[in-house]
Amino acid sequence: MLKKTLRFRSAQISVAILLAVLLLAIFGSALAPQDPLHQSVKDFLQGPSSRHWLGTDYLGRDVLSRLLAGTRTSVTTAAEATLVGLVFGAIPGLLSAFLGTWFDFIANRITDAIMTLPTIVFAIGCTAVLGNSLTPAMLAIGFLSSPLFFRVTRAAALEFVRAQYVESAELFGASRFRIVRVHVLNKVIPTIAVAAAMSASAALLIVSSLTFLGIGVVPPAPTWGGVLASDLSYLNQAPWAPIVPAVLIMLTAGALNALADAIRDASGVHVSLLSAASSKAATEEAAATELTQPGDDADPAFLGANSANPVIDKIDEEAADVNRHSAA
């Protein structure tokens, strides 16, 4: 699947951007031309110059150095939050599709409860209890994003739980674990990857909003979001200033999203192939119940898509057949 994904141009560009960001995360502090914390009152809010390539902020600190040095914190926090969301969301989501109604019911109610928590207040609470640093804040953000992972994973897994090959594996006496591992996991991963990319880009931005409140990042430590936030306060004096941190955040988030799209496209063939799967016995059951309760039980899914002009919109089965023959 990885190979297939990398065949997409967008995936290649995304991977290049993300690799560059990763390099910055590792070597950013070393690459910074000046001390990111060094203040110089007389140089505040300067435009780009040979000394300060990207200008200075309201305390006269070098913006380029602050961005380079802040990469690591920003990337780590985003990864932390996503990882926490994955653990608390994707795993229960996968289990929920397989462990039967009771687990599913309870997991769903817990998810509903988490979704009612207000993000900022919860984050403030967490930092109050666990101490004001980025890790507790990101734990909180990740935890709050877990319902997204839960829902997305569960929905994706449910699509495959009823697939006939899962039933067929059950008839061989395969355990739930084996079925998830062999038949379901690889089909759900693209969906989870899309959610993870979205969640990571969201986390990058959330760091900045927390910085406004002085939560998580303790000044003067630099982050992308922090640089952006401080620049936004001085828009009158330096209207160009937010552009660079914003572009950095957008590039990274955009690369993550594009990669997620490419993953989805690369695996999309199977998704469409399988979504039609519905067990035949279920059709029989539906047919039988329809006789008793007309109108009550008609399942549009069995009838396929609707169409205004009956003649025109139908996937050309023969053409599909032709494609297969010539591919073989």
Binding site: Q164, Y165, S168, L171, F172, L274
Partner: peptide
Amino acid sequence: RDLRRGGSVQFVFQDPLRSLDPD
């Protein structure tokens, strides 16, 4: 499950395109 693992009765589904995992 033990009976199924014994494999003495096997089922062949109607549509192999759906009953065989495409991956």
